[in-house]
Nucleic acid binder design. Structure first.
Length: 150
DNA sequence: TATTCTTTTGGCG
DNA sequence: CGCCAAAAGAATA
């Protein structure tokens, strides 16, 4: 399932009507439509967020990962919109090291819903979607601006 | 002080 | 083992 958003095209993957992964797609990707109720609900949630950064997602999704990753992702979801943490701060909160946080964030299957974009480096932006520069960082910056953090 | 290095780092495949 | 979306410290100017 592919939808368009203000930050480009998103590919949504579902497993048994539950959101399991989101990925950013190149603008060359083709749109696809789907009438399925479960998907429509997810799309509505996403659009609501792009309209209102304060929107809280009320949807189910799969959190497949190690115990540590789940711990990090859960902590991420507790960051309110408009607030930003550094890897260091998160590390202190979870009693681990900044490097490990980056590791877990990088493997986040659900960008936007799990707000890994609200974690930044101590000086600079950090990375996004596996990259430390390039187009992905523009998206990260856009999201932070959208939420008023910049 | 500001930049560029080198080392330390936690958890993962 | 070696790979990373980081940070702190040392070295240099």
């Amino acid at each position: 399932m592919i939808i368009t958003t203000p930050i480009g095209k998103l590919g949504l993957k579902l497993s048994s009507n539950i959101l399991s992964s989101i990925r950013f797609l190149p603008k060359t990707a083709l749109l696809s439509t789907n009438q399925d109720q479960a998907i429509q609900r997810i799309i509505t949630e996403l659009h609501a967020y792009f309209k209102n950064p304060q929107h809280q997602f009320k949807l189910e999704f799969q959190m497949e990962g190690t115990a540590f990753q789940k711990r990090v992702w859960k902590a991420l979801q507790n960051i309110p919109s408009g607030k930003v943490l550094t890897y260091k701060e998160l590390a202190q909160k979870l009693k681990t090291s900044p490097r490990a946080i980056g590791n877990a964030c990088r493997r986040n299957p659900l960008p936007i819903i799990v707000p890994c974009h609200r974690v930044v480096s101590q000086q600079g932006l950090g990375g996004y979607n596996g990259k430390t520069g390039g187009e992905m960082l523009n998206i990260k910056q856009w999201l932070l601006k959208h939420e008023g953090s910049i």
